[in-house]
Simulated scan of single mutants.
Amino acid sequence: MTLRLAAACAKTNQSRPYWIETKALNAVTLYRETERAHAVRIAQSAGRYEKAPEKLIIDSVDKRGIFAILHEDSGIINNINMGNLSPSDRLRLYVRGADGLSPAALWLNEDGMPRSKTTWYKSFNRANARVRKAGIENLSCNPHMLRHSFALRWYSVARLVWERKWAPEPASRAKDFREQFGDAWSFVQTMLGHSNVETTKQIYLQPFNALNVRLLLDYGRLSLDPDVLLEILDHDPRVRLLSHAERGYEL
């Protein structure tokens, strides 16, 4: 599913699309119908939402999901572009239903209140502690590491697809396609929302910078297959690949 990140929530203040797999969407739906719904009921019973300060209550949203009519506790009514609402503003959004107020935010704490970005760091710290307790060494994670892993994974996928798609084709045709639609670097740049592809290359995909040269020198070929890719990454100190035994564990 293609969704859009609001400009006020992006690092570059530029709205951009992003994509979610069906498996992830199904997991979100399950969360909404179980854990989240339970937390909302508890908070409503305790009157937490009615007591929340500086609430912005959504009266309606247009068909495009862009403009919303909000009213504040003071009674002031505003017509607001949703794309201009920052992450902190969004934590103040509520909707009123048959059972009373509930947060518009998807992710909630156990007490039913909207979950701020900083709280996720605590979740990762607790997960890292459980991993250490399980006896798994040299494995920890923070939220931004997921972005780097995402970049490495999708660059690998793009390269494999590119090689298999264009290996039988004349070099001139592959070159024309690359000039029109970009290469694997451009693909990951789009997925990450970078305005400059050099950021993608030098920071997020630095382990791949000399990939073509190493393939040529070490393997005498330009085609890329999964075994070659894993062997190259396994010798890069910035990349840690899970062993077969470790792949049974998930953070």
Rank of each mutant, 00 (worst) to 15 (best):
M1L: 09
L5C: 10
A8W: 03
A10V: 02
A10H: 11
N13F: 15
S15T: 10
W19T: 08
I20N: 01
E21N: 01
A24S: 03
A24H: 00
V28Y: 06
L30Q: 05
L30E: 04
E33M: 05
E33W: 00
T34E: 06
A39Q: 02
A39M: 02
R41N: 11
A43Q: 04
G47T: 02
R48V: 01
Y49D: 01
K51P: 04
K51L: 11
K51S: 14
A52R: 07
P53L: 12
E54D: 12
E54K: 13
K55E: 00
L56W: 11
L56T: 02
I58F: 00
K63D: 07
G65N: 06
A68F: 03
I69F: 03
L70G: 10
L70T: 04
E72W: 05
E72L: 14
E72C: 15
S74M: 09
S74F: 02
I77K: 12
S86P: 07
S86L: 07
S88T: 14
S88R: 11
R90G: 13
L93A: 08
G97R: 09
G97P: 06
D99E: 09
D99Q: 10
A105S: 15
A105D: 07
L106I: 08
G112F: 02
G112V: 03
M113Q: 09
K117N: 12
T118W: 04
T119I: 07
T119Q: 12
W120G: 02
K122I: 03
R126L: 12
R126V: 08
A127C: 13
A129T: 11
V131D: 05
V131E: 09
K133L: 13
K133R: 12
K133F: 03
K133Q: 14
A134K: 08
L139E: 04
L139N: 03
S140V: 05
C141N: 02
P143I: 08
M145Y: 13
L146I: 07
R147A: 07
H148L: 01
Y155S: 02
S156L: 04
S156Q: 01
A158I: 00
A158L: 04
A158E: 08
R159F: 07
L160N: 01
V161F: 10
W162H: 14
W166A: 02
W166G: 02
W166Y: 15
A171K: 11
A174K: 12
D176P: 02
D176K: 15
F181W: 15
G182Q: 05
G182L: 08
A184K: 04
S186K: 06
S186F: 11
F187H: 14
F187D: 08
V188P: 03
T190R: 09
L192D: 09
N196F: 14
T199K: 06
T200P: 07
Q202C: 15
I203M: 10
I203Q: 09
Y204I: 08
Q206T: 13
Q206I: 04
P207H: 14
P207M: 15
L211S: 15
L215T: 06
L216V: 08
L217C: 12
Y219F: 09
L222H: 13
D225G: 09
V228Y: 00
I232Y: 12
D234I: 03
D234P: 03
P237C: 11
L241A: 05
S243V: 01
A245S: 11
R247Q: 10
Y249P: 00
L251M: 10
